[in-house]
Write a protein that binds this DNA or RNA. Sequence first.
DNA 1: CCCCTAAATTATCTTTTGTTAACAGCGGAC
DNA 2: GTCCGCTGTTAACAAAAGATAATTTAGGGG
Lengths: 200, 200
Amino acid sequence: MGTSIDTLQELLFDLAGVLPADTAPLFAMTTMVSLETNETYIREGENSRRLAFIEQGVIRTYTIKENGDEATLLLRWEGQFIASHDTIINRQPSRFIYRALEPVKLLQIDYDVLEEILKTHPEYEPLRNFFLMKMLAESLKMLESFVTQSPEERYRELLSNRFDLVNRVPDKYIASMLGITPVSLSRIRKRMYTKRKTII
Amino acid sequence: MGTSIDTLQELLFDLAGVLPADTAPLFAMTTMVSLETNETYIREGENSRRLAFIEQGVIRTYTIKENGDEATLLLRWEGQFIASHDTIINRQPSRFIYRALEPVKLLQIDYDVLEEILKTHPEYEPLRNFFLMKMLAESLKMLESFVTQSPEERYRELLSNRFDLVNRVPDKYIASMLGITPVSLSRIRKRMYTKRKTII
DNA sequence: CCCCTAAATTATCTTTTGTTAACAGCGGAC
DNA sequence: GTCCGCTGTTAACAAAAGATAATTTAGGGG
């Protein structure tokens, strides 16, 4: 009886009116997974089609650039879904690595298994829909920030919206997610906390 | 009998085995819409929940920044879906404007109507799923380009992948979508076509 | 054909970022 | 405690981008 299951049962009831007692076929196919700090969840080139709900901890999704540098695409934490999007959407080996930045607990299901369940239990379909829409909304929000804001503005917004996250994650990953180098982020922080009048 | 309907019927058959003859309930609720060049499809603040499949033409999705400048989030063209994501996903008035850059023909459905249809015709559900996954894949691809590539690299990639698009759309919108100013894009082009040995 | 407008380029100057390397701070291993 | 490795900061210089304005280019309408 994990809190992830409780949360998802509640979500499923709110979305589709499915009673918790009727979710057994779904949760029977989920697995609770624990990851240590720095443990890799999904490797580069891996073909597993994993979808998971994070109960605790932070996972970093990153790729290795041609020059060997890492580029962080996403940071996901408790209460969010995480998915191997290359394998699930594009049906190709994952170009991304998913790694725990802290001890992580997540509730996992194989996407192929989920699809099978959905064939016989279409009442769970709203959950998949919710997950896709949520991911899409978040991606578009981030995309919007790249075309409307400067790196400094993106960092300021991250600070005001996700202060907890910024404090839990090393700056170099934050910088990478903002599309800049750690050196630049350090300079932005310096500008913010010295020159400027408005701290946040 | 529009070609959009043909395309979508084919898609629905491939995705879910639904025969074209069985798609009447869906397409009965769609409308063919024509837009002139520069005609606005969705206004800022609008609450309509429109989902459409573009049969011909290019639509630009942009927002007005605080300083009054425009920022182009997406360019969508024939064969792609377009959706008022603020109203559909976030259930809030659209912060974005959708405007035709060329004469546009699209097949439109109201998302609320689509949801009603899906309740009685769950066999169409894979189509919604396909649309969401497609949009998500594209958003993540763009996001990836922002964290892994420089503006020049993003432009080069756009040239090699979407040469047709670059030639149909004014540079200033391309620049905005790349997250830079038109002046910067002009300089990138100059650097590419003079200094460097590799043209593309 | 000329005029008008919008788009693109160019120029100048300022600001920011990238790159590289040195250095400080900190925590863990021993 | 000392050593080591990782993170973040700082410095110095090069490269790129932003802001602004002037100029050129391209197209459309009369």
